[in-house]
């Protein structure tokens, strides 16, 4: 364990020296994580992750399955709270505010940090109600017209409105997989979050639907901070500006996407990118 921790530290210093501030585009930091550890019961799933996530850009987490990338993602909006026996240590800051501060309201936090899941999970309600759910529970819409506007604009931004405008009252579960996932993105955006977390959003979709979602992510980047977990390196290369590589519960390497894929520093990252592990 000690050896492992030392390795991580060493890796990080190399990453920092590698990320020359003049080379990287100037972006304000939205989320800062320091030494985040996650335990499930007695087992430690994440061994101290430190990373900074830039505003209005797409950051992707890659790594073989079971590497802790999803676990870390779920720490950012405290979704791990809902798992019995899960315990998070370390510090995560959103705009300089500790999100694990006991005085912080997790409800408010999640309104600011939206999430899209691996499998499209529309509620068994109509398309309209799916999108309206968030605004309704948070009391964002003051009137019916207000709500209509939020629903329509969210669907529009998710690029789904044209496809479903005639059947807003039909169940969301009746849509195709790709449409369902875009519905979930619209649902997340309807609350007006600043950050959107995506947990392998395309893993259950076919290539065409995947392409549409990737295009959407690229558009959304202008207004949101996006963090995406993906098992596909190509996807990470296509959509993200920053990439972090996780392995066995450790953050091995992070940096500008292009650098990670063309010029990885760490041996494990190299192996993964070359397809030798994972």
């Amino acid at each position: 364990m000690d050896v492992m921790a030392g390795k991580v530290k060493m890796t990080q210093t190399t990453v920092e020296s590698a990320m020359n501030p003049t080379d990287a585009p100037d972006r304000s930091i939205r989320i800062q994580a320091q030494d985040v550890k996650v335990h499930y019961g007695a087992k430690e799933a994440l061994h101290g992750v430190s990373i900074e996530i830039p505003d209005r850009a797409v950051t992707s987490f890659i790594g073989p399955s079971g590497c802790g990338k999803s676990t870390f993602l779920r720490c950012i909006n405290r979704m791990n709270d809902t798992i019995e026996g899960a315990r998070v240590e370390g510090l995560i800051k959103l705009d300089g505010e500790d999100i694990y501060d006991p005085s912080l309201d997790v409800v408010e936090l999640r309104a600011r940090i939206g999430m899209v899941f691996q499998k499209p999970n529309p509620f068994p309600k109509s398309i309209y109600e799916n999108v309206a759910y968030g605004p309704k529970i948070h009391g964002i819409a003051t009137s019916r017209t207000d709500l209509d506007e939020i629903v329509v604009s969210s669907l529009r931004r998710a690029g789904l409105f044209e496809e479903v405008k005639d059947r807003l009252n039909e169940p969301g579960t009746g849509l195709s997989g790709g449409q369902q996932q875009r519905l979930c993105i619209a649902r997340a955006m309807a609350v007006g979050p600043e950050v959107i977390l995506m947990d392998e959003p395309c893993s259950a979709l076919d290539p065409i639907a995947t392409a549409i979602i990737e295009e959407l992510i690229d558009e959304l980047r202008a207004n949101y901070t996006i963090v995406i977990v993906t098992h596909s390196m190509q996807q990470a290369a296509r959509v993200s500006q920053k990439t972090a590589f996780f392995h066995l519960g450790n953050l091995i390497e992070e940096g500008v996407t292009e650098d990670i894929f063309t010029n990885p520093i760490n041996k494990q990252t190299q192996d993964y990118i070359m397809g030798r592990i994972g």
Binding site: G114, F117, Y133, G134, I137, H138, V191
Partner: peptide, 11 residues
């Protein structure tokens, strides 16, 4: 996943 979806929206 239903529950997660709802929690994720801040419910």
């Amino acid at each position: 996943s239903m529950r997660d979806g709802s929690y994720g929206l801040g419910a």
